[in-house]
């Protein structure tokens, strides 16, 4: 069995897929960089203590391991971030919303408009600085993990309006 490299293998090709904003790549990169730096700093404490001579016994080679691993992991994540963000997408079908995400662990979710209980827009300081917002769809099921991070603010608002409108139109009780 040949492994396919078709990135959209899971998602139906009949739909027009939209991606999230390219600016979200920068936001995610920034976010990831900050967390990587913080974590590296935290796990470097033993090395620093050894270097400063607070710890007797000199600088053992394995003391470098934790920061090295964390840093390497962070760099790999940074390299993958653009592809990760490109993997996020959504498509508006007549009666349901399709969402996809994930690079290694892929998910394609269909949420019928009539099943949305409410649509939530949220944004944080970093996202806000880039003029972005996240749209979360809530259904009665906790399993529905439908988040669209990093949409431009206007698009998020438009999507929310549309989803709300269509949700009303198709709503059915539990």
């Amino acid at each position: 069995m040949p492994a396919t490299n078709d990135p959209h293998e899971l998602s139906p090709a009949e739909l027009t897929w939209h991606r999230v904003s390219p600016r979200y790549v920068t936001a995610r990169l920034l976010n990831r960089m900050v967390t990587t730096v913080i974590w590296t700093a935290i796990v470097s404490v033993p090395v620093l203590l050894a270097l400063l001579g607070v710890w007797s016994g000199g600088v053992q080679w394995w003391l470098w391991l934790p920061p090295a691993v964390v840093l390497a992991w962070g760099v790999v994540q940074l390299c993958l971030t653009p592809r990760r963000v490109r993997a996020i997408g959504y498509a508006q079908a007549p009666t349901e919303l399709w969402l996809r995400k994930g690079l290694f662990f892929r998910t394609v979710t269909v949420v019928p408009y009539g099943r949305m209980q409410y649509v939530e827009i949220s944004t944080g300081p970093v996202l806000n600085a880039f003029g972005l917002a996240s749209v979360t769809l809530h259904t009665a099921s906790a399993g529905t993990d439908a988040v669209l991070p990093g949409l431009p603010r206007e698009e998020a608002d438009r999507l929310r309006e549309q989803l709300t409108e269509r949700g009303e139109a198709h709503m059915v009780g539990l």
């Binding site: 899971l10 290694f104 998910t107 979710t109 529905t144």
Partner: peptide, 24 residues
């Protein structure tokens, strides 16, 4: 409520996918 497909790296090598229906 919603329906999801998911696929991990190993599943992709074998051209497999998991199917889940979400209810309350």
């Amino acid at each position: 409520q919603s329906v999801a497909l998911s696929q991990g790296p190993l599943e992709r090598r074998l051209r497999l996918a998991s199917f889940a229906v979400h209810v309350t």
